[in-house]
Design a protein around this nucleic acid. Structure first.
Length: 871
RNA sequence: GGGGGCAUAGCUCAGUUGGUCAGAGCGCUUGCUUGACAUGCAAGAGGUCACAGGUUCAAGUCCCGUUGUUCCCACCA
């Protein structure tokens, strides 16, 4: 083994080997239980960020764990075409060449898009490899692959025929920059400071006016009424009359509608059905005309008269000026309000009436809610179910058409002769109505999330009845960030139920965001993003992985910090060196199996510790508590195995007794091998690299059985007794430090104890680890003499003659404080045991433990008192 | 307006069926070339687990309230 832990020297090599030998491949096996995870397909917009790294690491860890446990694991990788996001990128890219979409045309554009896909999807897959992702590359899927497109077509047509997809004029969110409709989920709201412009709307034939407050004065051209509350005494007599629309000088009616809030503003609200969702509803109730006054690019249309062609904000500016000049502006009030922005480009979205395709949500939402209620799908942590219900219960119809080119084209054709709308699984050649061959396909594409929603089954071959689908669906766990519950998780659930009649996954493990060191979101604009590849380059993938898991609780955000990765890298180094120690010592010797050696107390102690680690790690992993599992392994490896057991094994290893040497070596090897296996799902590279060096090991660790708890290896009594030996070592070390005794100076130990055999058996270990030169058993504390320090322990009292270093007063002080501590413990235990309620209600084991503790402490108190007396 | 999260050592955070639960990493103090590792070893200092109640034999751990902070959803023109 190399002297230094150097991840670069083996990570890529190992990954290639795994991949080439087919370790990641999921081969259906009816004798095995399947375990399926669908990778949330990263967008092909660029490269992976820290959030992805965490997402993939979580999945990989779970998948590797299950694979080692003997499941037939499928982790299916893929990438997402990310319709709008990618299209934006490509448009940006073309701009550099001075080209626009119009210049290259639909065909030309798609050609570029596919080239883009080849480049970026490939790059993303390489990054996934760097992270160590053990996904089945043979099943790599792209959301616009043939099979996904087929699924999309199937689903669209089915929903269409069921009447769950319809086309209509509705208010949708329009991004004037991307020039497409957006779904509600794709709009992000942000507080912005704006104004309330109070405008005079004169009542027809009167010389008074209604004061109307608006935040978007330019929409005035689309006003087709003003509304007042029918209960509003100030205005209700005016209902039915008309007002004169300022500037336009058109008459529009005053309607009575509950929508007008008497308490808010002036109580009069202008109604612009074409440009406001609420107004649209009002318009429907009062049968008002819908007048669109804006173009797709955010400029004003002919409806705006002389302002036609102006950008919406320029129009606002000029209109306000004109209103002011003509005395129609009452006042301007500063006002902060929430403004919707496109989640891709950040432009302010405009609510606009437009003819779009929608999925009717109500019939789909109900079963999806029930599935979670009935625990067919479980959110981890549970609280996210609430978020899900909240959204599902209030969800509006889903706008799925996008005025883009990159994506699944809507499979609807229109007959140019008779106007017939055709939606079939096969492309129509002629109109079934009139036989005309002049058919034109809908120009729009589908929302990216429409295909993502089908991911758990489209990847497995739906709508065909494939063996994969039969075997691997429903999937087991979906791992993703809480930020896409609405976009994706919810939509997969109702889609799975609707099209497969089964939920798409049983558990949803949510994780939070990876923030920067200061707790800020990582973002391009802040420039605070950390590239996972840079980190891997510097520290290795294992260190990055471990740092992303350690101390992270499900659903919680976490902070990335170099310091943390460094700490993890130190841990890797620790594993490396401990292994080097074990392997080095095994060199040239035959390592015997555990059953053929005589185990000493320390051996039994570490072996039973290992058993409890196996039990706890398995338990926590099954509950998706990866952060806790990491901690357990970290502590065990570093503290128990390295700091204690390896040190304890040295006397035997360097001694003359071949039997002891054999035992130590076989225990070291046994524990190391198991530890590596336990760690492998978290840190796959280093564990496999070391595993291959292990005496007797062959093949890759990733296909070995995960350690199983073995109750025959718990040695409970011996292990517990051995902790008494460790107490002695700790006490002597502490005493030496307290008295300023140099560590190199060996001390003598006089021990008053009833556990002479145990201590004798571990004499060498105590001498070495405590820095002592000899041990003498005594029968009376007086034998130790005055110039010694007494450490009263459960196992007995240890006297350390320190000569002139001993200060009697300080020693008395120290013992007194120990006495106080012990007395406190006695008081506490005594109190509990005398508590009627505790005695009658607490579990028996607890009472017994408490009683045993009390006895121990009472004995200790006696010894301390004795010792104090003798000073 | 509605719903969450968080508040534990100087800093970043674990602590999931209430019972050694007061922890880890980093930082800090002291001392160590202890035959795997100074990416290390040993010994320490440091917290009334936000505040105020309640349930319980027993509460960082469950319930109610308060304060601070943060996120999501809805949205009044």
């Amino acid at each position: 083994m190399e002297k230094k832990y150097n991840p670069k020297s083996f990570e890529d090599k190992l990954y290639r080997e795994w991949e080439e030998s087919g370790c990641f491949k999921a081969v259906r096996d009816d004798k095995k239980v399947p375990f399926t995870v669908m990778m949330p397909p990263p967008n092909i917009t660029g490269q992976l960020h820290m959030g992805h790294a965490m997402d993939e690491t979580l999945q990989d860890t779970i998948v590797r764990f299950k694979r080692m446990q003997g499941y037939c694991t499928l982790w299916l990788p893929g990438t997402d075409h990310a319709s709008i996001a990618t299209e934006l990128k490509i448009v940006e890219d073309m701009k550099k060449e001075g080209l626009t979409k119009a210049d290259v045309g639909r065909e030309g554009f798609l050609e570029r898009a596919w080239k883009w896909k080849e480049k970026y999807a490939g790059r993303i897959c390489d990054q996934l490899r760097k992270l160590g992702s053990s996904c089945d590359w043979s099943r790599l899927t792209f959301t616009m692959d043939e099979k996904c497109s087929k699924a999309v077509r199937e689903v669209f047509v089915n929903l269409y025929k069921k009447g769950l997809i319809y086309r209509g004029d509705r208010i949708i969110n329009w991004c004037p920059c991307c020039k497409t409709a957006l779904s509600d989920a794709e709009v992000e709201y942000a507080e912005e400071s704006g104004n309330f412009w109070h405008i005079k709307y004169f009542v027809e034939g009167e010389n008074f006016f209604l004061e109307v407050a608006t935040t978007r004065p330019e929409t005035l051209f689309g006003d087709t009424a003003v509304a007042v509350n029918p209960k509003d005494k100030r205005y209700k007599h005016l209902i039915g009359k008309n007002v004169i629309l300022p500037v336009v000088n058109k008459l529009i009616p005053i309607v009575g509608d509950e929508h007008a809030d008497m308490e808010f503003g002036t109580g009069v609200v202008k109604i612009t059905p074409a440009h406001d969702p609420n107004d649209f509803e009002v318009g429907l109730r009062h049968n008002l005309p819908v007048v669109r006054i804006m173009n797709d690019d955010g400029t004003m249309n002919e409806g705006a008269g002389k302002y036609c062609g102006l950008d919406r904000y320029e129009c606002r500016k000029q209109l306000v000026k004109d209103l002011e000049e003509s005395g129609l502006l009452v006042k301007v009030q500063p006002h902060t309000h929430n403004v919707g922005h496109c989640y891709r480009c950040g432009s302010t979205v405009e609510p606009i009436v437009s003819k779009q395709w929608f999925v009717k949500m109500e019939p789909l939402a109900r079963p999806a809610i029930d599935a979670v209620m009935d625990k067919k799908v479980t959110f981890v942590p549970e609280r996210f179910a609430k978020t899900y219900y909240n959204w599902m219960e209030n969800v509006k119809d889903w706008c799925i058409s996008r005025q883009l080119w990159w994506g699944h084209r809507i499979p609807v054709w229109y007959c140019e002769d008779c106007g017939k709308e055709i939606c079939e699984k096969q492309d129509p050649a002629v109109c079934p109505e009139c036989g005309s061959s002049k058919l034109k396909q809908d120009e729009d594409v589908l929302d990216t999330w429409f295909s993502s929603a089908l991911w758990p089954f489209s990847t497995l071959g739906y709508p065909d009845d494939t063996p994969d689908l039969e075997y691997f669906y429903p999937t087991d766990v979906l791992v993703t960030g809480y930020d896409i519950i609405f976009f994706w998780v919810a939509r997969m659930i109702f889609s799975g139920l609707e099209h497969m009649r089964k939920v798409p996954f049983r558990d949803v493990l949510m994780h939070g965001l990876v923030r920067d060191e200061k707790g800020r979101k990582m973002s391009k604009s802040l420039g605070n993003g950390v590239d996972p590849l840079d980190v891997i380059d510097k520290y290795g993938a294992d260190s990055l992985r471990f740092s992303l898991l350690q101390g992270v609780a499900p659903g919680n955000d976490t902070r990335y910090s170099d310091a943390k990765v460094e700490a993890c890298s130190n841990f890797m180094n620790k594993i490396w060196n401990a292994s080097r120690f074990v392997i080095g010592n095994a060199e040239g010797r035959k390592v015997k199996p555990l059953s053929e050696v005589k185990l000493c107390a320390a051996d039994k102690w570490i072996i039973s510790k290992l058993q409890s680690v196996i039990r706890d790690v398995t338990l926590t992993l099954n509950k998706f508590e990866l952060g806790v599992a990491c901690q357990i392994l970290y502590d065990f490896t570093w503290s128990d195995f390295c700091d204690w057991y390896i040190e304890l094994s040295k006397p035997a290893l360097y001694g003359e007794d071949e039997g002891k040497k054999d035992a130590a070596l076989s225990v070291l090897t046994f524990v190391l091998e198991n530890t590596l296996k336990l760690l492998h799902p978290f840190v796959p590279f280093i564990t496999d690299e070391i595993y291959r060096e292990l005496p007797g090991a062959s093949g890759t660790i990733m296909l070995k059985d995960y350690p199983r708890y073995n109750s025959r290896l718990t040695y409970k009594k011996d292990a517990q007794a051995f902790e008494g030996v460790m107490d002695i070592i700790k006490a002597v070390r502490a005493a030496k430090t307290e008295l300023g005794c140099p560590p190199s100076k060996k001390v003598s130990l006089l021990i008053l104890t009833e556990s002479k055999r145990l201590i004798s058996a571990n004499r060498e270990s105590i001498l070495k680890l405590a820095g002592a030169k000899d041990i003498t058993f005594i029968n009376d504390g007086a034998e130790a003499g005055e110039k010694s320090v007494a450490k009263v322990l459960h196992i007995g009292t240890v006297f350390i003659p320190m000569g002139e270093l001993v200060d009697i007063d300080k020693e008395r002080e120290r013992l007194s404080s120990e006495l106080e501590k012990v007395t406190d413990e006695i008081r506490r235990a005594d109190g509990k045991l005398n508590n009627q309620g505790f005695m009658s209600k607490a579990p028996k084991k607890l009472i017994d433990d408490e009683r045993a503790k009390l006895d121990k402490y009472i004995a200790m108190r006696e010894k301390i008192l004795e010792q104090l007396k003798s000073l």
